[in-house]
């Protein structure tokens, strides 16, 4: 059993190293994060001055940092799955002593881990520079980071599930874009859900984005053990749903896909 998992751990390590050595990609990500922090810090500064809410930028920019760490670290796994299904690459792996899905997923996790750690590390320094005092106690920082990392794993799983839809859809580009945008809106990835009308928040609560993004990231400015427990329970529930869908789609794929494509 342990031997079986060693294979995946080896893949994780290879992918981690590959991502680590891709300096151009990593610097592009960090540059983009810096620009986001810079712009939205300016936006909330201006709004704070206008409405007399000094320090509003600190809360929102720390919130934005963790939201972007989850989103930007996601390695476009849906495109990998879609291309593998369409091109027939997947069929070549079916008879190999390794699960194709777990192989791609662990590769994605390796890539995501590097990006996530760098984004949080660099982003925290940049956010401290722009805003000063963080809105959470410093001893809560590792736990908040860990919860956001688990959310990023769940986010990758969600996009893996979207990639498997390639079996039924001609193109998944627009679907994945729409899901990304829904995540931004329902997950409050740029602006926290507190600024949205209540009817909208009530709808958002029924989507996975609410717990993957908003509930988890909210720990940044509203940390409590009750909130933490709620996040773990809700994310656990959505993980089960995603895994059930993936198991169903993957079993269909195994039967249908061939070397000429799905």
């Amino acid at each position: 059993m342990i031997k079986a998992w060693n294979k995946y751990f080896a893949l994780y390590k290879i992918s981690f190293k590959q991502a680590w050595y891709n300096k151009a990609n990593l610097s592009g990500l960090l540059f983009f994060l810096f620009i986001l922090i810079f712009i939205y810090n300016r936006l909330w500064e201006v709004i704070g001055i206008q409405t007399g809410e000094q320090g509003i930028n600190s809360t929102f920019i720390w919130y934005l940092l963790f939201a972007e760490a989850i989103i930007l670290s996601s390695p476009k796994i849906e495109r990998t799955f879609f291309d593998d299904i369409r091109s027939g690459t997947m069929a070549y792996y079916i008879n190999k002593p390794i699960s194709f899905f777990l192989m791609r997923y662990t590769e994605a996790l390796g890539n995501m881990s590097v990006c996530f750690c760098l984004l949080v590390g660099f982003g925290s320094l940049a956010t401290l520079f722009f805003t000063g005092q963080p809105p959470f106690k410093i001893e809560h920082f590792p736990l908040i980071t860990l919860m956001c990392f688990l959310s990023a794993c769940l986010n990758t799983l969600l996009f893996a599930a979207i990639g498997l839809c390639g079996l039924w859809l001609h193109s998944i580009r627009t679907l994945s874009m729409a899901i990304e945008r829904l995540a931004f809106i329902f997950g409050g990835a740029i602006f926290p859900l507190t600024i949205y009308p209540q009817w909208f928040v009530d709808i958002a609560k029924w989507t996975p984005f609410y717990s993957i993004y908003y509930q988890t990231i909210k720990l940044v400015y509203d940390f409590s053990w009750t909130n933490l427990g709620e996040v773990i329970l809700l994310n656990g529930f959505w993980s089960l749903l995603f895994i059930s869908f993936i198991t169903y789609a993957y079993s269909k794929l195994n039967k249908k896909v061939n070397v000429y494509g799905g």
């Binding site: 891709n22 151009a24 990609n25 540059f31 983009f32 620009i35 712009i39 300016r42």
Partner: peptide, 27 residues
Amino acid sequence: FASDTQRLGDNMFMAFLTFGMQPASIF
């Protein structure tokens, strides 16, 4: 001039678009 610049280019372009999609009055 350099290898593996696909995502660097994507991110730089996205950063520019993000800048351009904000209310210009904040600057």
